[in-house]
Design a protein around this nucleic acid. Structure first.
Length: 483
RNA sequence: GACCCCAUCGUCUAGCCAGGUCGAGGACACCGGCCUUUCACGCCGGCAACACGGGUUCAAAUCCCGUUGGGGUCGCCA
């Protein structure tokens, strides 16, 4: 073990880059820098079904935009690679076999159906929900035979059934769990990929991570992780669980109730340094109580022990105020530079121009015609409101149709271009029992505010996911209030 | 529901660990005023909190217990 501090951020590339990732990354980054250590980026893409390259790329871009540079990672390399878990399968398999050999883990042949039925029964009888250890009693020789015969199985951790697990959190101190209510966690899935629990423990150890700074939602699986360190004979790192960012209603932050994509903040014109500054205020205070400070100043002053445990509500209003303060301190030249970099680049104009060229006769008309490419949320006039309605449906019904369209068809689109959007929306039409013609107009009006625009999917592509989703949300709210 | 975490103004928080200096400080939002051709910025002022109940103590926002409330977890997701 080295004695330098090593921290990591370990996002899963399964969606848009999340503000919570930035929050956790910020503290990991600051703590590592404060102690002259390393900050590692590790991609946890062991969910083969949901992980995708577009999402991974967006994570890199978003963290770089924020200025949270990592010392080691999939794209920059480093002495502890590979840094993408999908490229480390062999390592996990070797390690899990050690556990099976020592009896700390065992193969489980239970089917998904059996587990489902088990859960249903436990729910019914109001018993604690969890694996019942069914396959734990299979003699090792028999298990070996069945595995060799190619019978589908997973590997589970054999948790002690009695006694207590006492784990430690830097901020909370000792936390105790009765072992009887911790079930045998799956370590290796039937597809041969590890679960988070196995992969993160193995990687944190091999990558010599000294401080695991992550979100509070992991506390309940801490005993399983600690048990793994013990089973491997490894010294565990220091664990520090950060409070969870909250929606205004204090539930865990979610895109239904608060913008969570870092792409949103970038597109909406927040400055990375202001966002970082605001995030640092969530649970932490400068020794002199100053509210405005740079990343460098955070690094100089960070002390994990100073973090408050109450889950902070992410308050857009205060973030926006802070952002304004930053903006006002900048020179016009600096602002122009940001405008060009993050919002209105030449490249952006060049994407709009092909769409509006045919539709304008003088240069002046460009501003008028393409105005909706440059604003945030839209005001819907009387005429637009009417066209927001799906033909033959009431306002609340239309609201629901657009909401479902957004959440089920559009949100999952990671490569936001016409080629991916069109099939997604057409499929949504079928599911909703609507013709394209019936759905396209409300969608068009929702995202542009107008009934006449360049081709819908090209327009949506240029507007970008964040602007489209923001306007759709707004339109849904408006329709709801229309009754 | 079970388990775990948490609890100061509507929100972010200082104070709590080392109990008296707290008739609880700052910031956002809100309200009022000043500045100003307007708006905004900026400045000044105001409103507003120790969840509740016990205990310990000469003394509790600070320590202990309970209640209540909020949150998280309970996936071959992370």
């Amino acid at each position: 073990m080295t004695d330098t501090v090593r921290t990591r951020i370990a996002p899963s590339p399964t969606g848009d880059p999340h503000v919570g990732t930035a929050y956790v990354a910020l503290f990991n980054y600051a703590f590592a820098r404060r102690h002259g250590g390393q900050f590692v980026l590790r991609i946890e893409d062991t969910d083969r079904r949901r992980s995708n390259a577009a999402s991974e790329r967006m994570i890199f871009e978003a963290l770089r935009w924020l200025g949270l540079e990592w010392d080691e990672g999939p794209d920059v390399g480093g002495p502890y690679g590979p840094y993408r878990q999908s490229e480390r399968s062999e390592i996990y398999r070797e390690h899990v076999e050690k556990l099976v050999a020592s009896g700390a883990a065992y193969p489980c042949f239970c089917t998904t159906e059996r587990l489902k039925a088990l859960r249903a029964e436990q729910r019914e009888k109001k018993l604690p929900i969890g694996y019942d250890g069914h396959c734990r009693s299979i003699p090792p020789e028999e298990a070996r035979r069945r595995r060799d015969a190619g019978e589908p199985h997973v590997i589970r951790l054999a948790m002690p059934r009695e006694g207590e697990s006492v784990v430690n959190d830097l901020l909370r101190g000792e936390i105790r769990f009765a072992n009887s209510q911790i079930d045998d966690q799956i370590l290796l899935k039937s597809d041969g990929f590890p679960t988070y629990h196995l992969a993160n423990v193995v990687d944190d150890h091999l990558m010599e991570i000294t401080h695991v700074i992550r979100a509070e939602e992991w506390i309940s699986s801490l005993p399983k992780h600690v048990r793994l360190y013990e089973a491997f004979g490894w010294a565990p790192p220091v664990f520090c669980h950060l409070p969870l960012l909250r929606n205004p209603d204090t539930s865990k932050i979610s895109k239904r109730k608060n913008p969570v994509s870092l792409n949103y903040y970038r597109r909406a014109g927040y400055l990375p340094e202001a966002l970082l500054n605001y995030l640092a205020l969530m649970g932490w205070t400068m020794p002199d109580e100053r509210e405005e400070f740079s990343l460098g100043e955070l690094v100089k002053n960070i002390d994990l022990g100073d973090i408050r445990l109450g889950g902070p509500v992410f308050d857009l209003t205060k973030l926006t105020w802070l952002n304004g303060r930053y903006l006002r301190r900048m020179s016009p030249e600096e602002i122009l530079e940001r405008l060009r970099r993050d919002l209105y680049s030449d490249e952006y104009f060049l994407r709009i121009l092909p769409l509006v060229r045919e539709r304008i006769d003088t240069l002046e008309q460009f501003a008028e015609y393409s105005q909706f490419f440059f604003t945030g949320t839209l005001e819907y006039g009387e005429a637009a409101r009417k066209k927001l309605l799906v033909k033959g449906r009431t306002a609340p019904q239309s609201a629901k149709i657009l909401r479902v369209l957004l959440e089920e068809a559009l949100d999952p689109v990671m490569e936001w271009d016409a080629a991916h959007l069109e099939p997604a929306v057409r499929t949504a039409c079928e599911k909703a029992g609507l013709t394209p013609k019936e759905l396209f107009m409300p969608l068009r009006v929702a995202v542009t505010g107008r009934p006449a625009t360049p081709p819908l999917f090209d327009t949506m592509e240029v507007l970008g996911k964040e602007t489209c989703r923001r306007r759709l949300r707004h339109a849904v709210e408006l329709l709801r209030s229309m009754k």
